[in-house]
Design a binder for these strands. Structure first.
Lengths: 336, 336
DNA sequence: CTGAAAGCGCTTACAG
DNA sequence: CTGAAAGCGCTTACAG
């Protein structure tokens, strides 16, 4: 910047003003400065800027060490968040925080301007910690009391309603929900499952439909076991909303071995999964796919709104899953 | 740091020396300084340090905008790289560079100490660009001439040999390779496919086995089509090495519809995939799983070796895929 | 073993 | 509209 100033015959302050558009600069000097920058191939140093302005333009994406639920879509989320940050002149660092101390480590060294919190729990101790540290942050997911916070989340309520709509339109009235359980330990009270169950119970009751609630672990073997007992556990059920993509292959395989046809004997609608995972099944599953890319983008936008001001995004954003047609849903067999 | 120095009655230089262990400090002063840091909850500012030392302790993970091949494992790679960086006192930023200018943008602002390059092509223009910029970097993957570079890559040659070993031990002698093609455009000359084919041809020839070479696009529909014509294209083949995890479900489904049994009529060994993807199939595939976590870790270690010196990691690291038993490989039917 | 001081590359009141 | 100068929070020769 010294060199640019010298070559353009101005002060470094003026160079700074023209680079940042932070103060009016006459067209003539601007031209001289820009020519000098061009000639020298000048790029302003990010660290000098950060120290002087107290803004690093670095955002942290905080992900927990525990296994992610929606694994396949996490990479979309990561890259979408990084791209959005980049488009706004920010950088995104991946921060693997398994405990609270590592969170403090991040916020106390002044490296990041803000934090994006993934896999938010219904009661999440990290939220209070962040508030205490004064670091701007946004949530992917929701706590139990998210009103005062900025968040984006999947609209589980809307997704469940749309799922039931889809199945009812096909003619179903006895519908089940198979989820992966609320888990224990770190995953206890996992928001997506809690909210989906609540919405399912409510919607089914309101519509006066016959509801079944099922759970099994998130792996094919558990899906297989579930398949073996599903007719006992849910007699008369003709359609299943599945929020457990990893159980799907085992479940389908077991149903096939029993001579049951999907979708003719049982329609299956996979939710909060991805088209890619759905396509790994036979038949290819109809799916309400998780809006990972949009969640990543909007989470970053929310955070940058706080940092730069002037943003007009909705601070409480809920994004629907999108219905992607597959071969696993159809009208129930005549006679049901 | 000013405050710490005042409280401990030393200069800020001395605080710096004890924080960094960069110069000898007497036990007594060290104790005083540490007590003061404790009391004030001092954490040295990362930006000030970066500016003074000309080292940001930030690493960039450069991933191309084009779709990733080994999608499911990318998240493991990302998080493993981030964790390793963190363990060494570094941060990892995700940098979505779709073109060369965005690469220059990254290296010219002085934000990062080094770059990790993903999805390296056989001829990769980014390598020369990075060399020109003087930025330390390491590759995940290999160019055609990688001797002068630091890289970690999957040991495709070893993985293919081990795959053939596994099948030969089961009694197979007519073995095919089904890959996703070398692609066109940005993916042309994609190293993994090129190397796997070369190794396969060589190994099969050396061992005097009957080899079949097949390719189809990376999706279930293409796998299904391949299944429909596979007996014509590869008559007598009893085992298949599959480097195309997304084609697997379609292929298996089509084989089943034809009344062919996996593994009895055809053994299938999925390579450079993951146990998770393998488990999405029925039967669960035997798989040589990609060492994503190790690649992420070792790539970062290589880069930090360059930056901090004194590292003793092998600059040309090749990591084998690991055999994970499944239900898709077995001896050929008697009579073959 | 410890300190005074320069300097890393910028931004930002303040003054004109 | 432009500039001189202080300062962001550290590190690092240099001197003692």
């Amino acid at each position: 910047m010294q060199d640019v100033a010298r070559l353009a015959n101005v002060s470094i302050a003026t160079v700074s003003f023209t680079v940042n558009n932070s103060k009016p600069v006459s067209p003539a000097t601007r031209a001289r400065v820009e020519a000098a920058m061009q000639e020298l191939g000048f790029r302003r140093n990010a660290v000098g800027r950060a120290l002087a302005s107290k803004r690093t333009h670095i955002l942290a994406l905080l992900y927990p060490a525990l296994q992610h639920r929606f694994r396949g879509t996490v990479v979309n989320f990561f890259t979408s968040a990084a791209r959005t940050a980049s488009e706004h002149g920010y950088n995104l660092v991946l921060w693997p925080a398994s405990n609270d101390d590592e969170l403090d480590e991040l916020t106390s060294t002044g490296l990041v301007d803000g934090v994006l919190l993934m896999e938010v729990q219904v009661e999440d101790p990290r939220v209070e910690r962040l508030q205490k540290s004064g670091t701007p942050f946004a949530l992917i997911g929701r706590t139990a009391e998210p009103d005062a916070l900025d968040f984006v989340d999947i609209d589980f309520e809307g997704t469940v309603a749309a799922s039931i709509d889809h199945l009812v339109e096909l003619g179903h009235s006895a519908i089940g929900l198979l989820d992966g359980g609320v888990g224990s330990g770190a995953l206890r009270g996992y928001g997506p499952v809690v909210r989906t169950r609540g919405a399912f119970d409510r919607e089914m009751e309101e519509r006066g439909l016959m509801a079944f609630r099922l759970s099994c672990d998130e792996n094919p073997a558990a899906g297989r076991e579930m398949g073996a007992r599903i007719r006992d556990e849910a007699p008369g059920m003709t359609a299943l909303i599945l929020m457990n993509e990893h159980a799907a292959p085992g479940l389908l395989s077991e149903l096939r071995h029993q001579g049951l046809s999907v979708p003719d004997d049982l329609s299956i609608l996979s939710i909060a999964s991805s088209k890619e995972m759905a396509a790994m099944n036979d038949p290819e599953l109809t799916v309400m796919s998780a809006p990972s890319i949009e969640l990543g983008r909007r989470g970053v936008e929310l955070l940058i709104d706080q940092l730069d001001g002037g943003g007009d995004h909705d601070r409480h954003a809920l994004v629907m899953c999108a219905l992607e047609p597959g071969a696993s849903t159809a009208p129930p067999r005549a006679g049901h």
